[in-house]
Amino acid sequence: MSDPLPRSLDQRLDALARHPFRAKFHLRGRERVTAELSGPSTMRWHAYDLIAKRLAPAEPYKDGKQTPYRGHPVFVAQHATATCCRTCLQRWHEIPKGRELSRAERAYVVGVICRWIEREVGGSSGAPEAHS
């Protein structure tokens, strides 16, 4: 899988954000502060590390339950971008289950996650304003 152009990546993220479950995820509180203070290069490094350990193997340990909902900006991003488990990767990104992710697929997944975090931190998340 080749590295998508930012515009096509944004289009994919916009489509995912229209899914009711995925639309619930945004960086808030500690996760947002962590992303802002760490910066894009640190977030990318963390994403590569987490993907290598939790998603890249052919049969990840506890697949479907391996990604917490909170605790790190990458975890939140994984749920928002459907890169949280191999089933979601197959359904939303057409990356088949049952084999280790290629180097290009890992780079693609990290790119999706990092672009989502960038949009969240940059304020272009499209999150609706809270009304009381």
Rank of each mutant, 00 (worst) to 15 (best):
L5D: 13
L9F: 11
Y69W: 11
E36L: 05
C114N: 14
R28I: 06
L55P: 13
V110K: 03
R86E: 05
H79W: 13
C84F: 02
R103K: 13
E120W: 08
H46W: 15
S2N: 13
R22Q: 09
P20T: 05
Y48S: 00
A56I: 03
T67A: 05
C114R: 12
E118S: 14
P6V: 04
S8W: 10
S41E: 15
C88L: 00
L89W: 09
R106S: 00
R115Q: 06
P96V: 00
K65S: 06
H131T: 09
R103D: 10
L37F: 12
Y69E: 06
V33M: 12
E59F: 13
S125R: 07
A107G: 08
T87K: 12
E118D: 15
F21H: 14
H46E: 11
R119S: 03
P40W: 08
W116G: 00
A15M: 09
G123P: 10
A52Y: 09
T67P: 07
G29F: 07
E31R: 05
C85A: 02
G71C: 03
P57V: 00
P68F: 01
G39D: 06
H79T: 01
A127T: 13
P73N: 03
Y69R: 13
D14A: 14
G111W: 09
L50M: 15
K24I: 00
G64S: 06
G29C: 01
V76A: 03
A82Q: 04
D49H: 00
P68H: 04
P96C: 00
G126Y: 10
C85K: 04
K53D: 04
S2M: 12
D10I: 04
F75K: 02
V121I: 11
A130F: 11
G29A: 01
T67W: 11
L27F: 10
R54H: 15
C88K: 07
G126P: 04
G126W: 09
